[in-house]
Amino acid sequence: MTRITAWRRHPLARYAVLILALALVGMVYAAFVQAGKPADAALAAGKVDDVAEGRSLFEKHCMSCHGTNAQGTTTAPTLIGVGAAAVDFQMSTGRMPAAAPGPQAPRKPPAPWVNETTTRQIAAYVQSLGGGPQVPGAEQVDPKLGDAGKGGELFRANCIQCHNWVGAGGALTQGKYAPNLNEATPTQIYEAMVTGPQAMPVFNDTTITPEEKRSMIAYITQVREQRDPGGFALGRIGPVTEGLVAFVVGIAALALAAIWITAKKRQKS
């Protein structure tokens, strides 16, 4: 007892107790965080079992490119921290699994084993690895709740440089391109903005708020339904196509006119 009492009265005893208490709190906190990560991710995806099922699917279909623990390889990037939204976007649009390596994965029909359930399960597993943007809810992407006028302003300020003013898409550098948005669902449009797939930048909530994203979705879905009463749409790509058609039609008209004038002169002579 005398020795213990002496230790308690030592000048460094209070610091030792403080360090011990902090270490204990840190270990308890770390245990709770590690235990809660998969559960939180699965809860966001719908089922607690989704993480385990998602890992099994990942090992079967994705591990060969993305690595054993989704850490990435020379073939494919890391999936740690990309979030469930990125997985849902890539798999629902058929971009993943990729058919072949290339500068950009094209949109295509999903693989036979890909469906709503398997996509949700792999998304839950990837979400458990390091967080990231989650799949948006129905209200977040409902075009009826957005302001199409405001969305058009935002779209023209941030997106038309690549996607064209009506979302028809366009070519980029090094074999990449901005895809046509006419086939994208409101959920996929939102997920693309928060995850930045391919060459697209990330528009997080501090850059474009969720309400503004919803308004942009309202504009994109509205403009695709517009008609072209003034003439041919020509793909709605813009002045490049219009100029090409004007040049080809104009040259053809001039050539035909020249042939007709020459033929008339020969008849007179």
Rank of each mutant, 00 (worst) to 15 (best):
P38W: 03
D40G: 12
D40Q: 15
A42V: 05
K47G: 05
E53P: 00
E53D: 11
G54Y: 03
L57E: 06
L57C: 03
F58I: 02
E59K: 13
E59P: 08
E59V: 07
S64K: 13
S64Q: 13
C65H: 07
C65I: 01
G67N: 06
N69L: 11
N69C: 05
A70E: 03
Q71E: 14
Q71G: 13
G72T: 03
T73N: 01
T74I: 13
T74M: 15
T75M: 15
P77Y: 04
T78C: 04
L79R: 00
I80W: 00
G81D: 02
G81P: 02
V82M: 09
A84C: 07
A86W: 11
A86V: 09
V87Q: 09
F89Y: 14
G94I: 05
R95I: 13
M96D: 08
P103W: 05
Q104M: 12
P109V: 05
P109C: 04
P110N: 00
P110W: 01
W113C: 04
N115I: 03
N115T: 03
E116P: 05
E116D: 15
T117K: 13
T119L: 11
T119S: 12
T119C: 08
Q121D: 13
I122Y: 00
I122G: 00
A123V: 04
A124D: 07
V126L: 07
Q127I: 06
P133W: 01
P133E: 04
Q134T: 14
Q134N: 09
V135Y: 00
V135E: 05
V135K: 08
P136V: 07
E139L: 10
E139H: 07
Q140D: 13
K144M: 11
L145Q: 12
L145K: 15
G146S: 02
D147S: 10
K150V: 14
G151K: 00
G151I: 02
G152N: 08
G152I: 00
E153P: 09
F155S: 02
N158I: 09
C159K: 00
H163E: 03
W165Y: 08
V166H: 11
G170L: 00
G170A: 02
L172A: 14
L172W: 07
T173M: 15
Q174V: 08
